[in-house]
């Protein structure tokens, strides 16, 4: 298979398969979670559950007081690669063209040289969190195969994107095909791994805030 053929497959059937697995998989995970339900709370509320839920959904993006000092690398590495990943994904001109083709929406792009720098910084941050996961006693102890799979699935689109942009390793077309395929792998793995937190973090933050909010506690 030539680079062009691979790219055509990735952009055509590959993308369709990945999108179906992604959408159906995420839907299944949400449904099986939703069906579990929650018991009613008969204790007289002191505060508003909904207000607490919405509050924590946003405030939990900031570290708890003292946490930054206790585990700086987890927080800084985490912030940099999350923000960097989403900027490169959402604000690189060719990505916006792709997203417009899939969703119908489009928005202004950031300059390519800026995306290049942010991409590189994100790659560095991901390498740092991987090294931390392999060497720090707590992270190493908790990690399972799935954690490394999820790491690789996040890392590969950034790496192949960087290679394609700079015409490194192999010809542009093949590298672009690998880049699209790595993105499709990421889509497929979201419902199959902890990458599902992309969506469920909103539910868990909401419940945490709501449970505390009823008691009049801000968490």
């Amino acid at each position: 298979m030539t680079g062009v053929e691979l790219l055509n497959w990735a952009r055509g059937p590959g993308l369709q398969i990945a999108l179906v697995v992604f959408i159906v998989g995420v839907a299944i995970r949400f449904i099986e979670m939703w069906l579990l339900g929650k018991s009613p709370d008969f204790a007289e509320a002191r505060g508003s559950a909904a207000a607490g839920g919405w509050r924590t959904l946003f405030t939990r993006s900031l570290p708890m007081p003292g946490a930054l000092k206790r585990a700086p690398l987890v927080f800084l590495g985490g912030y940099v690669f999350h923000i960097g990943f989403f900027i490169t994904f959402l604000f690189y001109a060719p990505h916006i063209l792709f997203l417009r083709a899939v969703t119908g929406f489009s928005w202004p792009a950031l300059p390519a040289y800026l995306i290049d720098v942010i991409g590189l910084v994100s790659i560095a941050a991901l390498v740092a969190v991987l090294v931390h996961r392999l060497t720090d006693p707590v992270r190493r102890f908790l990690s399972r195969t799935g954690d490394y799979v999820a790491w690789a699935a996040t890392f590969l689109p950034l790496l192949t994107g960087y290679f394609a942009y700079h015409r490194l390793v192999t010809d542009y077309t093949t590298m672009l095909a690998l880049h699209v395929l790595s993105f499709e792998l990421l889509l497929v793995l979201i419902p199959l791994t902890k990458l599902m937190h992309t969506f469920t973090f909103a539910v868990s933050r909401w419940y945490n805030g709501a449970i505390a909010g009823r008691k009049g506690v801000k968490v």
């Binding site: 995970r29 099986e32 979670m33 939703w34 579990l36 339900g37 929650k38 018991s39 708890m64 946490a67 206790r70 585990a71 987890v74 927080f75 985490g78 720090d136 707590v138 992270r139 102890f141 908790l142 990690s143 399972r144 954690d147 999820a150 902890k194 599902m196 937190h197 469920t200 973090f201 539910v203 868990s204 419940y207 449970i211």
Partner: peptide, 22 residues
């Protein structure tokens, strides 16, 4: 004991280990 909040919590855990520091 598994209810919707519990499932959402397990779904969301990324094993970052921050809870250890609390």
């Amino acid at each position: 004991q598994v209810d919707r909040p519990t499932a959402s919590f397990f779904e969301s855990c990324v094993r970052c280990g921050m809870c250890a520091h609390a």
